[in-house]
Amino acid sequence: MELAHFSIELLAFLFFIAIVAGFLDTLAGGGGLLTVPALMMSGIPPVAALATNKLQASTGTATASYMMLKNKKVSWDEIKPLMLFAFIGAAVGTTMIQFVDTRVLSFVIPLVMLFIGIYFLMAPALDKQSKQAKVSAKNYQRLVVPSIGCYDGFFGPGTGSFFALAGVSLNGRGFIDATAIAKTLNFSTNMASLLVFLVAGQVIWALGFIMILGQVIGARLGSHCLFTIKVKYLRYLVVTMCFAMLVKYGFTF
């Protein structure tokens, strides 16, 4: 579709949503909980919304990942195998979504937002310090990471939060370190999904490029704030974001 098919108001709305999503996604994950419903509320078909979201989200996670590597907040040797398994899982999930009735997504989106919001609201305080891992490094790499990657390919919103939560609860990471690693894994899953969606011809390029600009701005801002903001504020951001979008989604549909 050409830009002329969309109103200035809609383009401005999606640009602003992308900035906020890029910022929040870098800090706490879950930016897709803003962008996917925003695209669907704009009248975009569900699978096209997921595909276009992957285009713009890939830029945001690429920016955040670059900042993490540049500032030596993550180790390339450590994350490389994790990114590979995340990529494989996402490719499988994205292939699966091509064969699913898209009406199912209208029920899945609010359920996922509700689940993530309640989890962050009720979960024990997240610690900055590392703890003992609950699963082996091998099982985490070969089972946990590709499973979350498959979810990202199949649906997506909240993946960054899931990677961060898994890093804390299963891999024994401190919350900030887990969040930094989650950026790189989310970039890998986004790229895998985007490649599959491109082959399927589902991406709406005009909207994707507008949102890419917003994602770059938001991700750069978030990357600079990640290691200075208090952990409890990240938690409040996720909870507020989830329930606000759940209310908005309910009124729209």
Rank of each mutant, 00 (worst) to 15 (best):
T61Q: 08
G31E: 04
M67I: 10
L111Q: 00
Q56E: 08
L39F: 13
I97F: 09
V108S: 05
I97H: 00
S106H: 13
R103G: 14
M40V: 03
N53K: 10
I79D: 07
P110M: 06
T94F: 09
Q98L: 15
A49M: 03
I88M: 12
T94C: 15
V112I: 14
Q98A: 12
A38H: 05
P45A: 12
T35N: 04
F107V: 05
L105V: 15
F107S: 11
L34K: 06
Y66P: 04
M67E: 13
M68N: 14
T52R: 05
K70A: 04
N71G: 02
L34S: 06
P45T: 09
S65R: 06
G32H: 02
I109Y: 04
L34F: 05
P37L: 04
A28S: 15
F99G: 04
P81D: 08
T95A: 13
L114N: 07
K80N: 10
N71T: 12
G60D: 02
I79K: 02
N53W: 07
L50S: 05
T94V: 11
V47S: 14
L105A: 09
A62L: 15
A38P: 01
P45G: 07
F99S: 14
I79G: 01
S58P: 07
A51L: 01
T94N: 13
D101Y: 12
P110D: 03
K80V: 08
G117E: 00
P81A: 09
I88W: 02
F87T: 01
L34A: 10
R103K: 14
V74M: 03
D77A: 15
M83K: 09
L69Q: 03
T61K: 06
G117K: 07
K70P: 01
E78L: 14
M83I: 06
K80R: 14
T102L: 12
L84F: 15
L27H: 11
L82Q: 03
S65H: 04
A91C: 07
Q98Y: 02
Y119D: 04
L82P: 07
T52K: 00
Y119I: 10
L55I: 07
V47C: 09
N53M: 09
A90H: 06
N71W: 04
S58F: 06
T102K: 14
V100M: 03
A38K: 00
R103E: 15
G117T: 06
L114Q: 01
T63A: 00
I109R: 03
L50Y: 02
M96G: 04
Q98W: 00
A51F: 10
L50M: 14
G117D: 01
S75V: 15
G31V: 07
K70I: 02
L105W: 04
K80T: 11
T35S: 12
M40D: 06
S75E: 15
I109D: 09
N53C: 10
S58L: 13
A91H: 00
P81I: 04
G89L: 04
D77Q: 15
M67F: 12
F115I: 13
L114D: 01
